[in-house]
């Protein structure tokens, strides 16, 4: 026979057990979070648990592809024996993911996030409360040049022709490319500044994705298109679009078969690469930061990574550690200035 009291105790026990389960799980999650990694000076053992790489965009985009390529190369290249996972946090040019990295994963070296030029711009245009300088920069990985194209029937044969008309009548040229405040519009803003035109006067029409931009170029809505080289390559190759200039340090083949001139070669002091890199949360100790940088260094020199670059057609754009930090700071300043000049930074 069981007394009422003992039955009540039993029930209380079951309840306590039920409550304790989430607590135990929570504790396990904390331990996994890496607080047990020694934060003292000197070398730290890293990685000691699963590395989680956040792609701050939907599956299928450039950041997602970068994260998944890193994941594959870390495993295939034998860089680490720990598990590597990729999770997607979508929204607002990556600023949703950025806010999460900074607020939720402070001081956790096993959380990494893919980032890039687009996020630098997104922070400015979305008036994000969190910005990239709050993270711990690890490395920049890849970069892609931009291309400036016109429809085949356009009268402009060189970038200089185009900019001459642009200077004479800024609103007559209809520029088009990706989303407002993205790489494409940043390039138009930089070019306008270099040519001595007020960037606010440039008519830039944003489209959601390269497909819409291409359609608008072919229909005659747009006079000039700006996008990554790979986006327009096929239409340039088939002769429907003409590449006027590319935005990198050296000319690349934009589809025509011969390298297109750079913007600098065309006479304007503008260089812009759509770069992508990786950052860690804030609050890492120097030793932890060095360990993460060492891991990414190893990733970069692995054959698996080199193969992946070749397969994806990405340019190697590797800067790590302090070099990455100063590059990130310089880009933040430059991009914030140009977006403010365009009038996208708001008040």
């Amino acid at each position: 026979m069981m007394t009422t009291a003992s039955r009540a105790r039993l029930r209380a026990g079951a309840l306590a057990l039920a409550i304790s389960i989430p607590i135990v799980l929570g504790a396990a999650a904390c331990a996994e979070g890496g607080n047990d990694v020694g934060a003292s000076a000197g070398e730290v053992e890293y990685p000691t648990s699963t590395i989680r790489i956040m792609a701050p965009a939907a599956p299928g985009g450039g950041w997602d592809l970068t994260a998944r390529t890193m994941q594959k190369a870390l495993k295939d290249g034998g860089v680490t024996s720990q598990a590597v996972e990729v999770d997607n946090v979508t929204g607002a040019a990556g600023t949703v993911g950025l806010a999460q990295l900074v607020s939720k994963h402070n001081a956790d070296p096993h959380r990494l996030m893919v980032t890039g030029l687009v996020m630098v711009g997104g922070v400015v245009t979305n008036k994000s409360a969190v910005n990239l300088t709050q993270t711990t920069p690890i490395a920049t990985l890849t970069a892609e040049a931009e291309v400036i194209v016109v429809p085949a029937a356009s009268k402009y044969q060189t970038l200089a022709d185009l900019v001459d008309d642009f200077k004479a009548n800024p609103t007559a040229i209809k520029w088009g490319g990706g989303s407002a405040g993205g790489t494409d519009q940043i390039l138009v803003g930089l070019l306008a500044k270099a040519a001595g035109v007020d960037p606010k006067q440039a008519k830039y029409i944003p489209y959601s994705g390269g497909g819409e931009t291409k359609a608008a170029l072919l229909s005659g809505d747009l006079g000039v298109g700006v996008s990554s080289v790979s986006e327009f390559k096929e239409l340039v190759k088939s002769g429907q679009l003409r590449a006027l200039a590319v935005s990198g340090a050296s000319g690349v083949d934009a589809g025509a078969g011969t390298p297109a001139p750079t913007i600098k070669e065309s006479g304007f002091e503008v260089e812009l690469m759509n770069w992508r890199g990786v950052v860690a949360p804030p609050g890492l100790s120097d030793a932890q930061r060095a360990a993460v940088v060492a891991l990414v260094d190893k990733l970069h020199s692995s054959q698996a990574w080199k193969d992946a670059l070749a397969q994806q057609g990405w340019d190697d754009f590797y800067k790590s550690g302090d070099e990455a930090k100063s590059f990130l700071d310089a880009e933040s300043t430059r991009i914030t200035t140009v977006l403010t000049d365009i009038g996208l930074a708001g008040s």
Binding site: A92, T125, N126, K127, S179, A180, G181, I205, P206, S208, L344, G346
Partner: peptide, 9 residues
């Protein structure tokens, strides 16, 4: 959401 043409929320 973000206005696609001006980038304003």
């Amino acid at each position: 959401g973000i206005d696609s043409l001006t980038g304003q929320a």
